[in-house]
Amino acid sequence: MAQRVSLFVTCIVDQLFPQIGMAMAHVLERLGYQLDFPEGQTCCGQPAFNSGYRQEARIVARHFLDVFEKCEAIVVPSGSCASMAIHHFPDLFAKEPETLARVRALRERIWEFSTFLTAVAGVEDVGARFPDVVTFHDGCHALREMGVKSAPRRLLAQVRGLELREMQPAEECCGFGGTFAVKFGELSGAMARTKVEAILRTGARSVVSLDPSCLMQIRGALSRAGSEVRTLHLAEVLASR
C-alpha cells in the first residue's frame, strides 16, 4: 500500500471549491496517508482539449507531467480530470513516443478519489456520519470513461445516518460538458433543469457526486430554481463525523 499520496485537487477545486480538497485531505489523512500537495499543479488541460485546441492542451498536459511525474500515487477529486490524464493524454501524445512513454508510466498511478479508497486503500467504511437523505449523481466521465459505478455507493452505504435514494435516471448527463455549458448555454441549462427535476423527485436534501464541475452545474441550476437542496462532493460526506 502506497503510504505517500499526492493530491491533484484540479483547478476548479483550487479556485472555487477548496473545501472539497480539504475534505479529501482529511479523509486520506484519517486513513493514515502522508499527503503531499505539489505546488506547481494547475489544470489537466481538458478545456483546451475538448474545445479542439490540441496544441494548447499539450502545453498544459506537459506541465502536468512535469509536476506529477515523481509522485507515487496521485488522487484526484474528479472522474473527469482523472480521465483526462488517464485516457486522453495518450491521444494527445500519440505522435511523441518519449512523452507517450512518460504518460503511460504516470497513468497507472493516477486515481479517482472513490476508486482509490475502495481499490487501493481497501476501505468502504471510513467512519463517517452524515444524517441526511442524499441522492447520487453519476458524472459521465467517472461512469463511462472510468467505469466508476459501485465504489461511491459502497462508500455511502457505510456512512452512519445516511439514506441514499437513487434518482431516475442517475446516469443522464447534467449538461455541464466544459465549454459546452457556455457555448450552448440555453441547451446546457435545459439539461441541468431536467437533472434538477430528477433530483427533486427523490425528496433528497443533498446531491452527492464525484465531480466538482457537475456539482457546480447542478447547484447553479438548483440555486436558480430557488431550491434549498445542497450539493456535496463525496469527500465532504466522508469527512463528516
Binding site: 477545486v13 472555487l16 455549458a181 457556455v182 440555453e186 441549462g189 447547484r219 447553479g220 440555486s223 436558480r224
Partner: peptide, 17 residues
C-alpha cells in the same frame, strides 16, 4: 452565458493552495 441559465458560485476567501 453561464449566468443566463444558472447561478454562479461565489469565489472562496482563499484558494485551496
Amino acid at each position: 452565458a453561464w449566468a443566463d441559465q444558472r447561478d454562479l458560485p461565489p469565489p472562496p476567501a482563499r484558494s485551496f493552495r
